[in-house]
Nucleic acid binder design. Structure first.
Lengths: 142, 142
DNA sequence: CCATTATAGTTGCATATACAAATACCGAAC
DNA sequence: GTTCGGTATTTGTATATGCAACTATAATGG
């Protein structure tokens, strides 16, 4: 059954979640080559780009709760892709050499993901959609 | 930080998830009065509307995996809001009297939810968004 | 009529995420 | 300088969800 055929398709909750899950699936496939979930991959890319970035900052960029960031970091630390250093109350997150080495492949995955959804949706339509959803998400901020 | 300020805000994965989480939050609040998550509430409303509906059908309407439907049903059964009957390999789901009694309040919650997001986003904009997201979700079906 | 295949549903297990509470540190005010 | 409110992070716990494997039933082809 198509999303738009559903009895409750006119409901924002329903539609937004169905869409997010489908996109998640696409993303999971794109990053499966590096054995990382999209969230982990994005976090790692952010850390590689801003070595020493703090969890709070990551939390803001990724719009995930601090506790979720901790869990993501723990897993990546377990895979030796990044490390934490602790100075007083603040924590800095750095990529390990192994993490840095993975970067090109992460960007390939990102590119593949972009390509896949652009192909399905069209470049313009997907760009519009992203922009539109971002705008809406901002409005929903309290 | 706003969703649209994020480094990866141009990424569909990221945007779709952030949006879905924010909407989820709004929905959770709207249905908190009946102590049900939005998913449970939608499932119950569907069952009340089509008594005897089968899990497979629910799975299609809600765009959730059959196993997830089983879990949702189990919980609602535990709350005595619906019951299952088994005939051979097929299962039928019916609302209990208690489940039926709850319907008006569920619809109130639904209405409240609509009102809240319409107020924030504007009636037209939210309607457009829902339609647009639904269309996109359909395209992403394999 | 049996063997195979397909369908409906459930169960076991894993994951991502959130919230609330706890911890640890910092800074400011008295 | 000590207490106290605020900030950064982690931990404990709960939830929704998915996938894969499993069971049970139905249907179909020989």
């Amino acid at each position: 059954m198509k999303t738009s055929d559903s009895k409750y398709c006119k409901c924002l909750y329903f539609t937004a979640n169905a869409l997010a899950r489908k996109i998640e699936k696409l993303a999971l496939e794109s990053w499966s080559r590096v054995s990382l979930s999209p969230s982990h991959a994005y976090l790692l890319m952010l850390v590689a780009e801003k070595p020493g970035i703090q969890p709070t900052s990551l939390s803001e960029h990724l719009q995930l709760q601090p506790s979720t960031i901790t869990r993501l970091i723990e897993k990546l630390e377990g895979k030796k892709l990044l490390i934490r250093t602790y100075e007083g109350k603040i924590t800095n997150v750095y990529p390990t050499p192994k993490g840095k080495d993975l970067l090109p492949r992460l960007h390939e995955c990102l590119h593949e993901f972009y390509s896949r959804y652009s192909e399905i949706l069209g470049k313009d339509e997907s760009a519009r959609l992203v922009q539109n959803m971002g705008k809406i998400a901002d409005k929903l901020d309290v």
